[in-house]
Amino acid sequence: MRDALRRDLRTIRWSAWLGWQMESNWTNPLLFLVYSIVKPVFGTFILVFMFVIILGDVATDPVLFSYMYVGNAFYMFVAQVMFGVAYVVQEDRERFKTLKQVYIAPISFFLYVVGRALSKMAVTALAVVITLVFGVMALDVAVDLGQTAWLMFGIGLFIGLACICTIGVALAGVTFLTARHSSGINEGIAGLFYLFCGVVYPITVLPQWAQNIGLAIPITYWLELMRRSLVPSMDFSEMSGLGEYSDLSILLFLTLSSMAFLILSIGIFKYADHLARKKGKLDMNSTY
């Protein structure tokens, strides 16, 4: 038991290390900064411009603006980890040709991908923080850390990131079976989350059936919790559709739905893994 735990921690440690070597492998640190930070921040600008064009001014609807800004910042984790993790499998398989070697090593491949995802999260976290700081300083996003319920925030952040990570690994499993350009599954799933989870607009603008889908996905509760803890001065309850629930209830929903997604993700990964061995896909080459 203790040996198994030590092996699993070792796996995560060295795959995260490998991931970090790849993420930060820029001969020029400036390029690294540009790539991993400026790019997502510019993505946020697009959103800000759209808001300004439609509503005229950020100050027209500060509650909606903060809602959107914080949601979009945290959604970066979802997008980066999901794109990134599928890329891990493809690159190991086709560029480095190491997938077989890692796969037959006496480690959990699931945890290997978790480690690689962690290094992506670390880079993304930097971008998220910078985006938020910029929002507070230049755009009056009402983040008020003095009022933040840190324990709630910490637990919520952890559960949400863990959940994103496991969904990412499930998609990595699916990537075992798909060629490089033919899938789009990861982009698709990330897009669905964007659509249904109240990222840049509240789910209340969606039809009821779509709201129900949103309410089944942990990301919805996660973003709500992140907003409530970082922007305590604003009241999102009018628009978010989750106003009737206390912080603790939201945390509970986040935990329960995350557990369901964890079980689902492990199931999908295991099945994809089995299919890959059965169909001989572990050293497949995508044809271009």
């Binding site: 490998l18 070597q21 790849m22 492998n25 480095f96 040709k97 190491t98 077989k100 070697q101 037959i104």
Partner: peptide, 12 residues
């Protein structure tokens, strides 16, 4: 396992 004819490894 070692496979020949296929260059593998993390180049960086």
């Amino acid at each position: 396992m070692v496979s020949g004819g296929e260059i593998s490894g993390y180049g960086l």
